[in-house]
Design a protein around this nucleic acid. Structure first.
Lengths: 343, 343
DNA sequence: CTGAAAGCGCTTACAG
DNA sequence: CTGAAAGCGCTTACAG
């Protein structure tokens, strides 16, 4: 039997209401009473029942992270863990607990989120990805639930979101290669249903256009966030008659696949092919050669998402702040892209 | 205003008790009533309030993962995410939600766990690591809370735990090198306060002893689960007058650091130094050369931990099953250790 | 500054 | 098979 507010009240010779007020640091309580009650709580080993509190206060001080099943294969574990670390750290600082949930498919995801939100178990949710036409986003938006998207929504532009400016980031990566003299630049994209794939493709195209360079449809391939995709893209590119001299890659993991393939075929990076990728995972500076990569501040994305969501929960959806937060990115130039074509 | 059991009851013309019974599939309820009530629940969009249910049933159907702050730097993100995926998947299958918590230090960790457990917010906790003299373990054990350790406890041998047989695994790795003819084998360990470091060191020592090989104190270095540690260990070893020809490494990330250092100094793997490490993260087969590594089934460790904990919660700490579960490991031999010394 | 009372949304013996 | 009642542990107007 756990000790309750009543036990404390009895022992302290006050009413349960008073104990409750001491607990929440109610201003109109005498310092004397407060101290006495606190001492007794300590002595009895009292711990407030979070569920009971939640039931009456109609707030849970918890948020939920939705981890899409598909993500397990799509993205790197590193990416998600870093995001989670950021989310949990900031949530914890603001007094919130974090629930982590996943579904085997979109239907399960909606059901899970619905159960948690409608069942009053969490106050809001963080979505770690953005697909086009996402039923989870539809559900959350329609029912007016507090949520934040790490990424961008195609359909709902004024949704709460935290994102990289992927168009700009990709523009920067491509521009960097152009400035080295490359004129034939390829792009390995991610799954086309992800908004991030679209955005990065767009930035790439724009950079080419601004530089007056041609874009060839066969220089753009779609894949997954997997080494295999990189490997396959590599062998495709290397067999092209007029192949690119540089590549922009949707993810470091894809780059690793390319690096391995190139190594097997005895090609050299950056001499035979320059590479720039995204995410700047720690191993990207350890590969041979070290990989140029766009650091998107993953931890910061998670941290900010937490912050923004909890703020919105507390303000009850008050729209007084920025709906869309952009986390700055930074191109980390390493050996994989220091070879100038002009030289 | 959320729709409650009362609303459903009123609309269905039954009592709240009956609705509650329908909800929990109580056997003594007529199919007719049940169907009618279920239809109304659907129609009204009823969702049971998890907190209210929890309050009266005194069970939360949630478990908590304690993510130690120090882990953020010590272990690879990959390792933790994989563990979490396993935990969440199995918990979700068994109808449990997963809370993820962390603390900046041991004190905060104990406080967090205490708040969650005593506050009746979670039914049990999973610890992702094992230090010697861990106050969190002390707390959990003393208060008789359901918990499972992923790893091994020095002090409490009969605690619920899921682990790799690290002594055997390390023995296997070392033995593999010995079978290739190596006689001077070094070991790069992790932080000495972690039980895993001790166990792996022990297996290494045993394999040497069994083969009648000498063990040199200077062939054993301690570090962190970081690339830097590998890098430093590498430069230490390579400057030794009578240096090892092979190394057993506590973690793949350490191996990457070594690989990088060796590459910079123009040494070759496996010709100049053979390597075998632990964890078999996906990138280990992508490095140059691909890394021999012990696969410890990380996902399986998490999955099983979830299973075991929830079972123990449901059986109310019934001791009818194995207290310590061992997840099988497997040595993945790759290029980094295929060089025979005898050849 | 403090207490009595009602109530959050559910479950579960106890009757019938 | 179903209902009325009590209660889980807390909070919060309403009084005083």
């Amino acid at each position: 039997m756990a000790v309750t507010i009543k036990d404390v009240a009895r022992k302290a010779g006050v009413s349960p209401s008073t104990v409750s007020r001491v607990l929440s640091n109610h201003p109109r309580i005498s310092t004397e009473t407060s101290q006495k009650v606190k001492a007794i709580m300590e002595q009895l080993g009292y711990h407030p029942n979070i569920m009971a509190k939640s039931l009456v206060s109609k707030t849970t001080n918890s948020i939920c992270i939705m981890l899409p099943k598909s993500a397990e294969e799509l993205f790197s574990n590193y990416f998600f863990m870093e995001l989670i670390r950021g989310i949990v750290t900031q949530a914890s600082r603001l007094g919130y607990d974090v629930l982590i949930s996943s579904g085997a498919n979109e239907k399960e995801e909606v059901e899970g989120v619905s159960r948690l939100l409608n069942g009053r178990r969490v106050d809001g949710v963080i979505l770690l990805y953005s697909r086009t036409n996402d039923p989870v986003v539809d559900f959350l938006h329609e029912n007016n639930h507090p949520f934040v998207l790490i990424g961008r929504s195609d359909q709902y532009p004024d949704i709460l979101s935290v994102d990289t400016d992927n168009v700009q980031a990709s523009y920067d990566a491509t521009k960097h290669l152009i400035s080295l003299g490359h004129e034939r630049i390829g792009f390995v994209s991610g799954p086309p249903e992800l908004v991030v794939s679209k955005d990065r493709l767009k930035g790439y195209m724009q950079a080419l256009a601004d530089a007056g360079l041609e874009s060839h449809p066969e220089w753009i391939v779609e894949g997954e966030f997997l080494q295999e995709s990189g490997y396959r893209a590599m062998s495709f590119f290397m067999n092209l008659p007029n192949r690119p001299t540089a590549l922009v890659l949707i993810d470091d993991v894809v780059a690793f696949g390319i690096l391995r393939g190139l190594h097997e075929l005895k090609y050299n990076v950056p001499e035979d092919l320059c590479l720039v990728s995204f995410n700047n995972i720690p191993l990207s500076e350890l590969s041979t050669p070290p990989l140029s990569s766009i650091d998107i501040g993953i931890y910061n994305l998670g941290y900010t998402a937490s912050q923004v969501l909890i703020q919105s929960i507390k303000n009850n959806q008050d729209a007084s702040y920025q709906k869309r937060q952009i986390i700055p990115h930074r191109l980390m130039i390493r050996e994989s892209s220091i070879h100038s074509v002009r030289s």
